[in-house]
Design a protein around this nucleic acid. Sequence first.
DNA 1: CGTATATAAGATATAAGACTCTTAAATCTG
DNA 2: CAGATTTAAGAGTCTTATATCTTATATACG
Lengths: 144, 144
Amino acid sequence: MLFSKGCTYAIRAALLVATKEIRDDRKFVPIRELSEELGLSFHFLTKILQQLTEAGIMESFRGPNGGIGLARPARSITLVDVIAAIDGMSLFSSCALGLPGCGEQTPCPLHDAWAKRRLDLQRMLEKTTLASLARELATHELRN
Amino acid sequence: MLFSKGCTYAIRAALLVATKEIRDDRKFVPIRELSEELGLSFHFLTKILQQLTEAGIMESFRGPNGGIGLARPARSITLVDVIAAIDGMSLFSSCALGLPGCGEQTPCPLHDAWAKRRLDLQRMLEKTTLASLARELATHELRN
DNA sequence: CGTATATAAGATATAAGACTCTTAAATCTG
DNA sequence: CAGATTTAAGAGTCTTATATCTTATATACG
């Protein structure tokens, strides 16, 4: 799998928050509401979203009318931001064959081909923001 | 991680067998020799290579002077063949967000961008054979 | 202030992946 | 045939990822 499960949950939840913020003009959404709409475990999602707040991507408030919301404008939050907070950046730096120290200096046989593609993937995920995804969701009839 | 650890071990071992076949004109190599040269657990590597023999990629013989060798010419064994035998093909067909049923009909917001890149990755890994990698290893000074 | 609501944090449980160990089966050599 | 060598197969262990449960802590509101 490209991303861990937790990472895919984080992306889906963050996108849903962005959608609600834009479409319904709501700032804070209870995690319970997110978990129910996405069909995910409430407790598990809570733990994952906590990592996003620690990373400064989201902010949370406890108590009644509390919930979680984007800490920055949706157009300034990229998928790489979310991925970095949950899975780290190793996907974009590590060797396809898992060889430590593989790089320009001492490349493995797959290095050039993979390095080129992982960089392209990173660039794409850096260009993709929660706002751009939310816009796509709104215009086309896409699943989330 | 892109591939499972077992899958990376399988690729590295298969490539080493191909190298020995070409360079030293040896048909069967004991797994113990492979595991020692690659710094991997003998028992674990045995189990993984067993999957390659089951998949018809390698063939094995027991007893003294036994070992494991390529079942077909190295130029006809692609990395996708090895990957399919160990990890399966899900990397090349599954949704980046892990959504079941994501596809052309009901795409997720990331579908187009990822589908394009995973296909490119698959094409590249289909074009890469054990023979072409072994050739690169021989001409350049690459690590394995 | 007291109660309800919501996230935070930590402990615990389950599942999957990675790895090890033991025994069996096959094959060669003398 | 006997013994050595090597893969095959299965059980068992360790580690990490995934998921759940429980207990704090903060906030709103009557």
